[in-house]
């Protein structure tokens, strides 16, 4: 059992290096060039980044991405917590219920986004059927204005990703010893107090994990936007991923790489910050 570790881990390292690390480095490299399909490739140093900083479309997509995270992640956490608390109860058909909750997570985002597209569809979609059916007014173009499109995206995204949060928090809940609840009841805490003073604090590590994974995931949001709004209307819902993608699609690899590197750096900073935060919490506990 000696000295053989390297041999067993080599395939993994090779794959990760070849298809994750090298491409990242490649993106860094490419971002230093003006590299557009039909033009001569030219070294520009930080020129692409400078261009991005002064590019209003880039700032718009940065702003969108940040607001998208700020709105959708807390919403998902709140919904996920509610679901987890329900699933933690001793309900009949718990297994079936859990399978239902998992379904949105398991279905390809592109496909569920197609369903949302239909739901939001003008005139005949489910959303408008409910809207008019409930007497709220005439049919609405749910993807037509920047704010409506934003709200529709957040709803679709929250539907898709709440299950993940639920499962993580459910695991956190089931790790809380039941004796603590009994002890709290003996100490005459009411159920609201139990929730605030016991459940929530003990759930904090799981919340943090869910927050970390969801934030990093929301940072790179692409599929749902690509299908639902394609970044519109007027570029108002273009996420950073989609923005970079559009440049790649047009053969502008230099600028696209610069944006994707910027996104990578933000994601990396987030993950480092969270890892530090997690360590800090553990040190407190």
């Amino acid at each position: 059992m000696r000295d053989r570790g390297i041999l067993f881990i080599l395939p993994l390292l090779a794959f990760v290096a070849a298809f994750i690390i090298v491409p990242i480095c490649g993106a860094f490299w490419n971002s230093a060039f003006q590299d557009i399909g039909y033009l001569q490739t030219r070294f520009v140093g930080l020129g692409n980044y400078r261009q991005a900083l002064s590019d209003p479309a880039f700032r718009q997509s940065l702003k969108f991405t940040i607001i998208f995270i700020a709105v959708s992640v807390p919403l998902e956490l709140a919904l996920g917590l509610a679901f987890a608390l329900i699933l933690d109860l001793d309900l009949p058909f718990r297994g079936a219920l859990r399978a239902c909750v998992l379904l949105p997570w398991a279905i390809p985002t592109a496909i569920s986004a197609r369903v949302w597209e239909l739901i939001y569809g003008y005139g005949y979609g489910l959303a408008n059927a409910l809207w008019t059916g409930l007497g709220c007014g005439g049919p609405v173009n749910w993807l037509g204005t920047p704010w409506r499109a934003f709200g529709s995206l957040v709803a679709a995204e929250a539907w898709k990703t709440t299950p993940f949060v639920t499962i993580i928090l459910l695991a956190g809940l089931s790790a809380i010893p039941r004796d603590l609840y009994s002890q709290a009841k003996v100490d005459r805490a009411n159920s609201l107090q139990i929730f605030w003073r016991i459940t929530l604090p003990l759930l904090r590590p799981a919340m943090l994990v869910a927050l970390l994974f969801r934030t990093i995931d929301a940072l790179r949001v692409f599929d749902v936007i690509y299908v639902l709004t394609h970044g519109g209307p007027g570029g108002s819902t273009t996420s950073l991923s989609l923005y970079a993608y559009k440049y790649f699609l047009n053969g502008d690899f230099g600028y696209g790489s610069a944006i994707s590197v910027a996104l990578f750096l933000v994601a990396f900073a987030f993950s480092l910050a969270y890892v530090r935060l997690a360590g800090y919490c553990r040190a407190l506990a």
């Binding site: 000295d3 993994l12 994750i20 990242i24 490649g26 991923s241 690899f253 996104l263």
Partner: peptide, 30 residues
């Protein structure tokens, strides 16, 4: 097994899983 730098490998792989896909696609496409 005996493996120097286990923690580093795990951290490195975890970090790799957090990279945005779009950062890879440009290079992968080429």
């Amino acid at each position: 097994l005996d493996l120097p730098g286990k923690a580093a490998v795990l951290f490195f792989v975890l970090a790799a899983s957090m990279f945005p896909q779009i950062s890879l696609t440009g290079y992968l496409f080429r």
